[in-house]
Amino acid sequence: MSEIIMQIDGIEVAAEEGMTVLDAAQKAGISIPTLCYLETLEPYGACRLCTVEVEVRGRTNLVAACLYPVEKDLIVRTRTEKVDKIRKMILELLLAHAPVARGLKMQEYAEEYGADKNRFEKEPSFCIQCGLCVRYCAEIKKKNAICFVNKGPSREIQFIPEIAAKECWSCTECFPLCPTEYLQGVFVLTKALAFPSAPMGPTVEE
């Protein structure tokens, strides 16, 4: 494979064709925050926390590092004022759903970017819809026991009772993937199995 020389935060980085900006940065030891990314899964591009600024032939653009392919002479800036502002806002928007996230990542990021967890009115569902559980079940376990339902702001995760009843208790591998709360998966699964015809989604009040 041909080597691609590019620049990340002023440092010259060697990448390989087919890599993403995130791959190249990780290889060079430059950290870019992610919530919906997992090495073993297809990049998803949903949380947008890995947004970075790229410059190609003098034109700059904001892109998701987990998806943007590397190319020769690409210039990447991972911490511009704009990038930080975007990350801070994304975290604040998510903290409204998971204000007491026990997952370490969310707390660390919130501190690093100065995100105020009280900026937006709280709707604690604990789910930030990173899709890690959904995609892990589909891509790795190939069971599709958990999926997304609904659209727009009412999008939620939901176990499919018929599949979950057979597959989930012996697996539970998706629980620890959750960036907010291990018990989130437990709760949604229990709810799906105990009340298969209850209104969809993890929040009781809805």
Binding site: L93, K151, P153, S154
Partner: peptide, 22 residues
């Protein structure tokens, strides 16, 4: 209108819309 028509996958659109609408 858009709240019912976006796919809801990415955070800026889904959550941004929710807050702006509020």
């Amino acid at each position: 209108f858009l709240a019912g028509e976006s796919c809801g996958k990415c955070v800026p659109c889904r959550e941004g819309m929710r807050q702006m609408l509020k």
